[in-house]
Design a protein around this nucleic acid. Sequence first.
DNA 1: GCCCGAGGAGAGAGCGCTCTCGCACGGCAG
DNA 2: CTGCCGTGCGAGAGCGCTCTCTCCTCGGGC
Lengths: 341, 341
Amino acid sequence: MTEQYFGTRPTLEAVAARAGVSRATASRVVNGGTGVRPPLVDKVRQAVEELGYVPNPAARSLVTRRTGAVAVIVAEPETRFFSDPFFSQQIRGISKELSAHDVQLVLLLVEGPDDYGRISRYLTGGHVDGALAFSLHDDDPLPAITRGAGMLTVFGGRPGFPAAVPYVDADNRGGAREAVRHLLSLGRREIAHIAGPLDQTASTDRLAGYRDMLPEADPALVAEGAFTTASGARAMSELLARRPELDAVFAANDLMASGALRVLREHGRRVPEDVALVGFDDMVSIAEATDPPLTTVRQEIEEMGRLMARLLLRGLDQGVAGPGAPSSVITPTTLVRRASA
Amino acid sequence: MTEQYFGTRPTLEAVAARAGVSRATASRVVNGGTGVRPPLVDKVRQAVEELGYVPNPAARSLVTRRTGAVAVIVAEPETRFFSDPFFSQQIRGISKELSAHDVQLVLLLVEGPDDYGRISRYLTGGHVDGALAFSLHDDDPLPAITRGAGMLTVFGGRPGFPAAVPYVDADNRGGAREAVRHLLSLGRREIAHIAGPLDQTASTDRLAGYRDMLPEADPALVAEGAFTTASGARAMSELLARRPELDAVFAANDLMASGALRVLREHGRRVPEDVALVGFDDMVSIAEATDPPLTTVRQEIEEMGRLMARLLLRGLDQGVAGPGAPSSVITPTTLVRRASA
DNA sequence: GCCCGAGGAGAGAGCGCTCTCGCACGGCAG
DNA sequence: CTGCCGTGCGAGAGCGCTCTCTCCTCGGGC
């Protein structure tokens, strides 16, 4: 039960006075205590305790030029951010890693094109030491903004342009190959694909994996969705109209797979007997809730978030001018077999 | 294309020099420009532009004692945070309101009991001006922490203790009454309830609403879940075992309703013919994806988030010592009729 | 034409911290 | 016993900004 000094929080000065040392020594103790003799360390520690001293972050970062915070920028049209647990999970991984290093997470949600100015100003303002950014479309202005602000930034998902920026991504192409390979191993021959929006690399990479395994496949077997349940349903209807004889579907995420599943059932196709279905993500709350439960390609979403944070922190520690920008990381995927294929 | 001065960003001093005015005048212009004659204002504005000046937030908040940031504290066991779009949506509303006022959002996720120390230190450290906190269990230490830190805090959801803290909550009790009233109007007489965890007021309030309409109901008609799909399924199994003759279920959220739906189907009960089912939340991605689509009680989640932020900002503006802590707000609910009841 | 008041601009103090520098003191070698 | 080096501590400058206080200037009223 520490006393409350309303209005005037104790300063380092006060701590120093109470401990009978100089401000410099008090500062040394607060920041690790190296080079100070034990008895003095104890005295200062005690003074800190008694006064309930907490360093003023503004004063500190004014001189250190470090804020101890990083921005997490989520640029995604309405629909996806709050229907897709993907981001929550990735942010969770990021949060864990950051708070383990006592770094704070400032969340910047981009709601519309006007927001980019705000974000840009915020980054150049030096509120944060670095940034993590998500889910770029090919024409996303974010990389240009973070570069312009001179802000070290790690991206989530491979950016859709040749710039050499550090990123963390799942092995989308390999995962897709595995999904299709599984369907082939079940004896399926008319394998359709419901792709995500093709201005995102996650979609194009998964499509590329599909094509790797089925180079001869009829283009009519591919339909584009938008990573939402509804778009998956729509794409499935299209595919059934175009190629009624299809016997398998690989959807680029679980949400679209669940939409497809509903449409398949409405058309009287049994899953997996008539049509085998594989998703992507292994979003447990979706994949296990469908009937039948979804066979899907699992990516370690939380781990990817953790990796992004780790990469950024490492880059920050070496200084931006250090031996190298952090390099990128591709995380493996695994096929999770449930009942739908 | 502003020139980049690596290492040395321009200061107010530099702007003042370039504009041929004093630092004080430059500051006045940057902060609104009142009391400065137009020609000087223009000169300063131009200098700001040319140098690409952005104020140093640390220096600023060192003297103003305002950070321009608020904390959003999410204390929720793993499972729920990333399976439930609830939070994402509420955070979205908060983010919109905050960024409209140029206030930043610092996200603090509580991963375990050890984190409370970290949070407490962070709040007392003065990193933020105020806080928004979520989803308290009855024994949650958060209110004590924010009070101890002297931090103005608006809660999301009615806290489970008598303290007079400002909060924003949906009309859980009224919504529950409406759900049950609807089931009664359909002629159902054996109406069961799948409650949420009973150490949260959202659950107890919804249960209270159920009891308001059915004061005589057999206690065996109520089972407790945990707001997850799996727990909803489990609760439904229990209820069917205890009261096989039930003809309606009101679940305290959509996730549990979807779990219940699966179990009902597994037991050969048709929905809505044999058993009518109503959920709560109107989580569109769930309620519309079930088969049949879920009748549910809608709460305006994003709006609630926006309101929380508005309440906090207003309180902050008046100063904590102002005429009054912000008062609480209860937002209305509406019944959304789909096919399940 | 003079005085007074209002309003606009500048000087300077400080917000709370870190960090460099210099000084003092103790131990050891010569 | 003296000189030198290493270590521990304190003094003080300064990070970039805001804001008060003072000074100056200009306009209006008598």
